[in-house]
Amino acid sequence: MPYNVRIPAPLRKFTAGVETVSCQAPDLGGMLAELSLRYPELKERLCEPDGRPRRFFNVYVNEEDIRFLGGAQYRFRDADEVLILPSIAGGR
């Protein structure tokens, strides 16, 4: 069940410039863990010290805010297009 996750520009310095990462984890928590495992420096950017996702970024699935799709309960599907974006988005 692979799907692509797009990494926002300000975080690409922690992914060696990689813009799109293929993930397998079934849900949001799993996806953040999978990204953190592959790119350890992403972890503190994406998660609070207690592991919860940080407040100030949004995750979109096929252009819909994941919070409208069930949030942490949403199960990713094959070929979903996932986008991580700071809630006040953008690079420099």
Partner: peptide, 23 residues
Amino acid sequence: YDQVNRLCGEIAQKLPWGIVNVN
């Protein structure tokens, strides 16, 4: 608006523009 704003967030990463409510 929220969809427009998301698009602008993506544009801000690509183009050297001063986006008043982004960068």
